[in-house]
Write a protein that binds this DNA or RNA. Structure first.
Lengths: 143, 143
DNA sequence: CTGCATGCAAAAACTTTGCATCGCA
DNA sequence: TGCGATGCAAAGTTTTTGCATGCAG
């Protein structure tokens, strides 16, 4: 799967405005247990298999709320399904993903962050953000 | 720093596979005349207004074909509509996109290319490729 | 002629929304 | 108890697909 699951995420408050409900806790718990991105549909499926009853509409509503408050990142792959991932903080990090087995390495790239910020600024852009994902075949799958 | 279009792309054939049809030529011509990204829906609307009769399904089919052969870039903004644009360079390149007005700056980032390749290699990954898109508000939209 | 490409419309896939009900606070 | 949260299903969007017909080669 992956290499470094960390603890201490449960300490982070979901910080959602509004009430604490079973559904919100279930979604948050599921996201916390995941290292990688997951689509709303898959998350709903995962919860169902686990016995957590949360309607698909609610999964969307909760994810949308998190997105608006910035506690999750949203990525839109080319296949049409938006995927969500817990945003541990404002730090930015990226992924190196094996497109065969899914092995994922998370990494930070300060140089690139800085470069992107400067490049955007040079062109008069503000409120810059960016996405960087690296794909390939991992050592095992390359063999 | 660079975003200029280079020559040497006229050699690329619009639609290598399949027959040359009025619809394919119309789509290709429309794309060629555009500087920025356009969605399939908007492209269809544009063609219709111009009097070019091309069904929406066919626009999708043609764009999909171009996408597969790499002659157009596809971007998926967060609002759910995929946007397409002629790929000016077959080389790897990225985009700086204004998320308000859509102004796009195409750029190459050799340093990042090299960094990504090396990073992937260090982790045993092969056949590396990556995506990097920078978003923000352009000077005009920032005002 | 032959068969790929197109048009049309229905279907699919994903996400949002209206409304009645439920359950935190 | 009150009002936000949820469930359900229907609506909305964007994109794909089945099938008969049309046109390029």
């Amino acid at each position: 799967m992956n290499q470094e699951s960390d603890a201490e995420r449960s300490s982070t408050q979901p910080a959602p405005r509004g009430r604490s409900t079973r559904q919100k806790r279930a979604v948050w718990a599921a996201l916390s247990a995941l290292e990688d991105f997951i689509s709303a549909q898959d998350l709903h499926r995962l919860l169902s298999e686990r016995g957590e009853q949360v309607s698909l509409a609610t999964v969307y509503r909760i994810l949308q709320a998190h997105q608006e408050e910035g506690s999750v990142d949203v990525l839109r792959p080319d296949d049409g399904e938006a995927v969500y991932r817990l945003c541990e903080r404002q730090e930015h990090h990226h992924h190196l993903v094996c497109r065969s087995c899914g092995l994922t390495v998370e990494f930070a790239a300060p140089d690139i962050e800085a470069w992107a910020a400067q490049f955007a600024a040079e062109h008069g852009f503000t409120e810059q953000h960016h996405t960087l994902e690296v794909f390939g075949l991992c050592a095992d799958c390359s063999a």
